[in-house]
């Protein structure tokens, strides 16, 4: 609009200048008055336009300011919301991290516990295995000494076994073979005592028939005939179908 007003003023000025330059003075004066009136009118219009424009501009500026304010408020609100969200997210994140940390610690504790438990179980199993292997080995050595006729060694081996492993499954075997070692070494008195102790401890054991028979032989070697007969009589009653009973019958001529 300002551009259009400026263009009209400029056109009038050019026309006045052109008429003035033609030399028609009378007419010119009249025309100047008219032109001035027009000019003033135009100026008034121009001013009105300006005022209107200014008013419009002020309105626009006010609207703009309102819009800006609204925008600022909106942005502030948004920012506040974002901050809140951020805070909440951060809090959640912290919680999560804390939970993860706790979980991790729990995991560590669980695995440590599990490891310790495994270690404990393994060490207990190892210890049990080692103990079993040790007792098997000790028994095996004593037995191999017996089989090779090294009776002094087998006696000390079996007795050592009994000292170390009195509750082992092979304990009765160790007692039996210790007595057998005495018998094989012809230490009949010692063998007699050990056979007697064995019978007292395991009266119905798997080896009782054999031990009754051997006890009788130990008596026989010591010329204790009555004891021998008594033991073998007992054997015949207890183990009538055994090989030992057959041997006794053969020996006693029955």
């Amino acid at each position: 609009m300002i551009k259009a007003v400026k263009a009209i003023i400029f056109s009038c000025t050019v026309i006045v200048a052109a008429l003035s330059s033609t030399g028609c003075s009378q007419l010119t004066v009249l025309r100047v008055k008219e032109l001035n009136a027009v000019r003033d009118s135009i100026r008034a219009d121009q001013q009105a336009y300006f005022n209107k424009l200014l008013e419009e501009q002020s309105k626009l500026l006010a609207e703009q300011r309102n819009a800006s304010e609204m925008l600022r408020l909106l942005r502030a609100d948004q920012l506040a919301r974002f901050n809140e969200m951020d805070r909440k997210t951060s809090a959640i994140s912290n919680n999560l991290s804390d939970s993860q940390s706790r979980l991790s610690r729990l995991d560590q504790k669980t695995s440590e516990f599990s490891r310790r438990l495994d270690q404990k179980l393994a060490s207990e199993e190892d210890a049990a295995n080692q103990r079993k292997a040790q007792q098997d080995k000790l028994f095996e050595i004593a037995m191999s000494d017996f089989n090779a006729g090294r009776y002094d060694l087998s006696i000390s081996g079996f007795l050592d076994f009994l000292r170390q492993f009195p509750d082992a499954a092979q304990a009765s075997d160790a007692e039996y073979w210790a007595a057998e070692s005495r018998f094989a070494k012809k230490e009949y008195e010692a063998a007699e005592k050990e056979y007697m102790a064995f019978i007292k401890k395991y009266p119905d054991g798997q080896r009782s028939c054999s031990v009754f028979y051997k006890l009788g032989l130990a008596y026989e070697h010591q010329d204790k005939k009555k004891s021998m007969e008594m033991v073998w009589k007992n054997l015949l009653q207890r183990c009538p179908d055994s090989q030992e009973a057959q041997s006794v019958k053969a020996r006693m001529g029955q």
Binding site: F146, A148, G149, A184, Q243, S247, A250, R251
Partner: peptide, 23 residues
Amino acid sequence: KRQLTFSRGGIDTAPSWSPNGYQ
């Protein structure tokens, strides 16, 4: 002579001494 086994109708044979002479 001494009989060590007493099978009846069966067979007990092929004895082999242990080196300690005990079994």
